Every structure is written in structure tokens, then in C-alpha cells.
Simulated scan of single mutants.
Amino acid sequence: MEPERKPLRRHTSFQHIPIMKIIVLLGGESAERRVSLASGEAVAQGLAARGHEVYKVDLVDPVRLVPARVPLFNEAVGERPPDLSEIPRFTPRRLAALMETLDRQRPDLAFPMLHGGMGEDGRLQAALEMVGLRFVGSGSLACGLAMNKPLAKRLFLSAGVLTPATLLVERDWLHDVAAVSEAIHGRFGFPVVVKPEASGSAVGLTIVREPELLADALKLVAGLGSQALVEPYVFGRELTVTILGREALPPIEIRPHGGVYDYYSKYTKGHTDYLCPAPLTPEQSDRVMDLGLKAHRALGCRHYSRVDFRLREDGEPFCLEANTIPGMTATSLVPKAAAAVGLTFEDLVERLAWMAME
């Protein structure tokens, strides 16, 4: 039986937190690199503002230790993700160099702010676990489960959390548009959502309303070197729930002006409205928060996560995914949810750092 969730309380700043040496890990090699750079810069600045000794390390240049005050990235995230061919690869040699940097610097903890790729799929977390370095966020197993969306969906269902049906399109099937279209018709019909099996920030996501548009959506996913996940489109409202520690924060409703919460809508200021707390009935709000906690626990997440939902027109919530390293940019959702319970951005990142030290 799930423990009863206590009434949400207003949060206040921590007192008497010792000064820590913290290395923020950011950048990386995925299509979400620019989002990671923006998130990592914000986290480093927030921790430094509280007096901590903070440095940044970009995973593609792991021997370079950058003080928090020196900007690595001070641009907008941009309207579209970068071309993967322009991003250096994170090789085993770079991983070894990163471990040497961390061993030489001896930080109190690492603060991963990597989105997608090996920085969020559990591989980086496994390396940190092997060397015994404390770090913020979920461990390697939970990160791997969350990034494997088909497997995560099975765990959601086992925990009593509804999630849309799924058709997994393997790489060698992506070019057989007719076969995929036939499978969609046989499973759930159009419209559908097509997205990479293991990615975030809406990179490669397409809402396909007609079969004639399927080929372009599959080609987009193929270009990312990924398998495709196809789900029936859930008509309704877009919601997200932040989990902080053992609590669910107030749900946020997301209303993109263009109708689709894609990469452009996520990271272009003024193109999406965020309602926090979401205009829900108390019963709806409590239910979505409880389901968010169940999804978080089903994956074994710790410290924090963000769980995304579609609230169907009949009021039934469907969990889309859980994010183990959610964004911390100027338009990100976790800081907005934290602000709704009285936490400044500096409060939030320092609280996460302290959770990792407990």
C-alpha cells in the first residue's frame, strides 16, 4: 500500500548548510546539448550565489574546469536542436579524462545537468557510482529505466498509472512506411505521436494526423539514429508534475500557442503559457500528483523528477514519461513548480545538492 501523501507544505530555505565544492556536469553529445548547457549554467550560478565553490565541466571537454563565474554558454537555446554531426562524440577516452578530473578535484558532489544520451540514460551515473562520488539525481538503474520508454511504460502500468498504448518501430523498420502505417491502423489508428524511443526536449517529436505525413516523421527519427515510439494521440490537456524529495509539487498546465509542445514551443520565450498551479479541481490535482509520485517510485527515482501527463477530455490522466534530469532553463517547468511552493531557484538547487549529501 502506498503511504498516504501529506498535505503540500510551503517550503523555506535551508539553514546552516555547509559550503560545498560542487562540479556541475553539462553539455554532452546529445541533440539536447544546448538545453543542457543553459540548464547547467543556471544551476552553477544558483549554487554559487549561495556561496558554494562551483565549477563546470562539459563532457566533450572533460579536462577543462570552468569556474561558475566564467560563462560557457550565454545564448538562447534556439528554435531547433543542433545538428548532431557538429557535436564532438563522448568517447571512452573522454570518460577516462572526466574520471581523472573528478578524482583530481575531489568535489563533495557532482550535479549532472545532462539531457539525453549517456548523460541521462544511466551510463554517466554508473561511472559516478563506481568511483563512489555522490551526485544529484536518480541512480543509474532509474535513469536507464526512465530513458527506455517502453520498459518505463510497463512499470507505470504495474504501479496503476495509465499510459498510452505503444508501437515500437525498430531501426530497420523505419523505412517501411506502408508496414508501419498498417500496424498503426491495426493497433489504434491515427492521429499518433511519433518520437525517438530514448530522447527528450521534444527532439524528433511529430504529431501525425494523417497517414500521408507518417514518412516524414519516421525519417526525422531515423536521422537521430533512434528507434521510433508511436503512441495514439491523447486529446486533452498537457500537464506536468514535479517530484521534489518525497513530495509532488502543484501540477502545471502547458498551453503552447502553436498547439504542439515541441522544441520550439519549449525553448522560445513567449510561445507557451504555463499555468501554475494548473486550473484543476482539487480531486483532479490530487490524483495527478499521486500518479506522479507513483510513476517516480515505480522507476526508483530519487531527489527529483518531472512526470508528464495528458489529461484526456473525459478527465482520465495518462502518463507520457518521467524525466530524471529535467531542464533548469529560463523557460523550464521544475523551477516554476518550485516557485509555487515558495522556493527560489537558489533554494531549489541548494536543496537538491543537500539531498545528495544526506
Score class of each variant (00 low, 15 high):
186 G>Q: 13
196 P>D: 14
232 P>I: 11
192 V>Q: 06
257 H>R: 12
166 T>R: 05
206 T>Q: 12
235 F>Y: 10
147 M>T: 05
185 H>S: 13
225 G>F: 11
156 F>C: 02
220 L>M: 14
193 V>W: 07
257 H>F: 10
192 V>Y: 13
198 A>V: 06
253 E>W: 09
182 E>W: 00
187 R>K: 12
199 S>N: 14
221 V>E: 05
159 A>M: 02
214 L>F: 10
150 P>S: 07
146 A>V: 04
255 R>A: 09
247 E>A: 15
185 H>Y: 08
236 G>M: 03
162 L>Q: 04
188 F>G: 05
155 L>P: 00
197 E>Y: 01
182 E>G: 04
202 A>N: 08
154 R>P: 00
208 V>N: 15
182 E>L: 05
229 L>Y: 04
156 F>D: 01
238 E>Q: 10
192 V>E: 14
247 E>Q: 15
172 D>L: 03
218 L>I: 12
206 T>D: 14
167 L>G: 05
169 V>N: 12
203 V>P: 03
184 I>Q: 06
162 L>E: 04
155 L>C: 00
144 G>A: 14
197 E>D: 12
213 L>A: 15
248 A>N: 02
171 R>L: 11
163 T>D: 03
178 A>G: 00
183 A>N: 02
157 L>A: 06
194 V>Y: 01
230 V>T: 09
207 I>V: 15
162 L>H: 04
155 L>Y: 03
163 T>E: 02
224 L>E: 09
189 G>F: 06
215 A>M: 07
204 G>I: 11
205 L>D: 02
250 P>M: 13
149 K>W: 01
150 P>G: 08
235 F>I: 08
202 A>E: 10
230 V>S: 14
254 I>T: 07
148 N>T: 01
236 G>W: 03
188 F>Q: 04
148 N>G: 02
187 R>W: 08
184 I>L: 06
254 I>W: 06
164 P>V: 03
199 S>P: 04
152 A>L: 04
233 Y>N: 11
171 R>V: 08
163 T>N: 00
191 P>M: 06
212 E>P: 00
241 V>G: 11
177 V>H: 03
189 G>Y: 02
233 Y>P: 06
216 D>P: 00
144 G>F: 02
244 L>H: 09
190 F>Q: 12
188 F>I: 08
147 M>L: 07
211 P>W: 15
235 F>T: 13
228 A>S: 15
198 A>S: 15
196 P>V: 04
218 L>R: 08
204 G>L: 08
168 L>Q: 04
156 F>G: 02
222 A>C: 12
145 L>S: 03
183 A>R: 12
223 G>W: 12
197 E>G: 01
195 K>D: 07
164 P>C: 04
208 V>Q: 14
217 A>E: 01
216 D>H: 14
204 G>R: 10
191 P>R: 07
254 I>G: 05
195 K>Q: 12
252 I>F: 15
217 A>Q: 00
215 A>E: 10
242 T>F: 05
240 T>H: 05
245 G>K: 09
228 A>Q: 11
150 P>M: 09
146 A>D: 12
237 R>I: 08
146 A>T: 13
204 G>P: 09
203 V>T: 09
213 L>N: 13
189 G>S: 15
235 F>Q: 13
172 D>Q: 09
173 W>I: 00
191 P>L: 06
187 R>F: 08
172 D>N: 10
209 R>L: 04
